[in-house]
Simulated scan of single mutants.
Amino acid sequence: MMGAVRIILLRHAESLGNVDELAYTRIPDHAIPLTGAGREQARETGPAIRELLHGDRPAVYLSPYLRARETFALLGIEGACERVAQEPRLREQDWGNLQDPREQEVQRQRRHDFGHFFYRLPYGESGADVDDRVAGFLADLARRGEDHPGTVLIVSHGLTMRLLCRRLFDWSIDLFESLSNPGTCEYRVLESDGGKWRLDRPFAQWRESPDGQTQG
Rank of each mutant, 00 (worst) to 15 (best):
M1I: 14
M1G: 14
A4P: 09
L9M: 13
A13D: 05
E14M: 09
E14I: 08
E14Y: 01
S15F: 05
A23F: 01
Y24I: 08
R26W: 06
H30Y: 11
A31P: 05
L34N: 02
A37H: 10
Q41T: 07
L53H: 04
R57C: 06
P58G: 10
V60A: 11
Y61G: 01
L66S: 04
A68V: 03
T71P: 11
I77T: 02
I77L: 12
R83V: 04
A85T: 12
Q86L: 14
L90A: 06
D94E: 14
G96M: 14
N97D: 15
L98D: 04
L98A: 13
P101N: 10
R102T: 12
Q107T: 02
Q107M: 15
R108S: 13
H112W: 14
D113I: 14
D113N: 14
F114S: 15
G115P: 03
G115L: 01
F117T: 01
P122R: 13
Y123C: 15
G124V: 02
A128W: 14
D129P: 04
V130Q: 12
V134E: 02
A135C: 15
A135F: 09
L138I: 12
A139R: 10
D140F: 04
D147A: 01
P149V: 03
G150K: 12
L153I: 02
I154A: 01
S156N: 13
G158D: 08
L159E: 15
R162V: 00
L163H: 02
C165N: 06
R166L: 00
L168V: 03
F169M: 07
S172T: 01
D174N: 11
D174F: 00
L175F: 00
L175Q: 00
L175M: 00
L179P: 01
N181P: 09
P182Y: 05
G183P: 09
Y187P: 01
D193I: 02
K196V: 14
F203Y: 03
R207A: 01
P210F: 13
P210G: 06
T214P: 02
Q215K: 00
